[in-house]
Amino acid sequence: MALLELKDLNVAFEIPDGEVHAVTKLSFSIDAGDALAIVGESGSGKTQTMMAVMNLLAENGSASGKALFKGEDLMQMNAADLNKRRGKEIAMIFQDPMTSLNPYLRIEQQMIEVVMHHQGLTRAEARAHAIEMLRAVRIPDPERRIRQYPHEYSGGMRQRVMVAMGLLCEPDLLIADEPTTALDVTVQAQISQLMTELRAKSNTAIILITHDLGVVAGLCDRVLVMYAGEAVECGTVEQIFYQPKHPYTKGLLKSVPRLDQPDDSGLEAIPGNPPNLLLLPEGCRFRERCPSAHDACRDTPPMQLDGQGHAWRCFLGPTDE
């Protein structure tokens, strides 16, 4: 059984001008101990997918479909049951470290409340655990710094606190939304290393939401590419990086600098903009920006499978260029 399995997840936001379809019929699954990356442009629905799983959508948002966590549907769960899992079995690291910590509470309080609530530790035990975790994310002098408030931390340090907080309960699933974007390269590597260690140690599955394909290669086994609220391609890191099938994935990869390519190959941007999520076009959503678009693309393309875990939503066959 998959650890988390999404079936036909839809997320929509009600706004004065209509309904924004942030995520459309998204299905994927992740097994215990696996690491999956979800990549795509801003607005492709990656973050909102995970917000829906955590039941943290904004008030004007609504989700439908299934999110089976260890066989139980998170969407149908009452608040109490959900709260037994949030923070303990599923932890989430948010992407904006500057505003995601409570400015009015000491770091100590914000960290220990997680373990005290879920594992029934005493304050002293929880504190010792929290300090240990801060040390693990390379916060210097954690005994002193844990008594401080968020504004006394730099952005990178706050992000590390967020990571430490997510790891406190050694969750079964860690959802990390751009966990390293705000950090400099050495710290990025440390955080990635930390997550890799955690994976090995406590068999934590990781869903990594990111722009950064470099981090993906280092940390993840599988990649899900999203575009305009849909999954457009899914496969192993090797499949996605070396045999991309969907024109969007190919475009994404071409827009990333690569060391293994000659200098003069150049970077290419994907022309145009993603479609307006209020007025989604019929057929393939990437059609208007796609170099290989043709008349058939006015119909919804099928999800094609190659039998080896590689799937893509396009009319192009496995060998088409």
Binding site: F13, I15, P16, D17, V20, A22, V39, G40, E41, S42, G43, Q48, H211, D212, L213, L252, S255, V256, A269, I270, P271, G272, N273, P274, N276, L277, L278, L279
Partner: peptide, 21 residues
Amino acid sequence: MTKSTDSPVIDPFEAALGVHA
């Protein structure tokens, strides 16, 4: 980075603003 120069950040709410424009 996957963000190309001519594809601005679009989130659901900015998309809404786009409609106004």
